[in-house]
């Protein structure tokens, strides 16, 4: 976990919201351009127009949904940091589940539970992969173990009288 690479806590919400919005905007634009291109009536010109219209109409909505997800997630994350006094993977998993639940609040309790489980599992996967990568990359920074030389070749340790002779 790179806690030093991120903003401190209250501003992290704004930062994450913006990051999620950008991700949604760019990803949504790519996705919608393909979808609009395929769904448009035939003719190359019409296809490009359809692609453009799809980007214009749909990608802000996708970006907004991403931003809501990111902002809510970060808000709950910061709240948990405040109350638990620590930053660990459980924070992310709990806030992922809570975000999924809260954002599906208008669709009824079963939908909330489903979204919460999906959110929690998704964040658990992400955190797990992160920890796995940290473990793997930590291997190469391990200091090489020093093999002690065989002390039996050195002969017996000098007695007190011998060492006096040298000095």
């Amino acid at each position: 976990m790179e806690e030093y690479a991120r903003e401190p806590c209250p501003w992290r919400i704004v930062d994450d919201c913006g990051g999620a919005f950008t991700m949604g905007a760019i990803g949504g634009a790519l996705f919608q351009s393909i979808k609009g291109f395929r769904n448009a009536p035939s003719g190359m010109n019409k296809r490009f127009v359809g692609s453009l219209m799809a980007i214009k109409q749909r990608s802000p909505i996708i970006a907004g949904n991403f931003a809501v997800w990111g902002g809510m997630f970060s808000t709950i994350d910061c709240t948990l940091v405040h109350f638990r006094h620590k930053e660990d993977p459980w924070n992310s998993i709990i806030s992922g589940a809570a975000t999924g639940g809260i954002l599906a609040a208008r669709n009824g309790v079963p939908a909330m539970a489903g979204s919460a489980i999906i959110g929690g599992v998704l964040l658990a996967l992400i955190e797990g992969i992160g920890i796995l990568f940290t473990r793997l990359s930590a291997e190469q920074f391990k200091p090489p173990t020093l093999v002690p030389e065989d002390p039996s070749q050195l002969g017996p340790p000098p007695t007190l009288a011998e060492s006096r002779n040298y000095s």
């Binding site: 501003w11 919400i13 919201c17 990051g19 919005f21």
Partner: peptide, 11 residues
């Protein structure tokens, strides 16, 4: 600064 600006604009 971009992400903070975008997030602030959204919020």
């Amino acid at each position: 600064l971009a992400f903070s600006q975008i997030g602030a604009a959204c919020i």
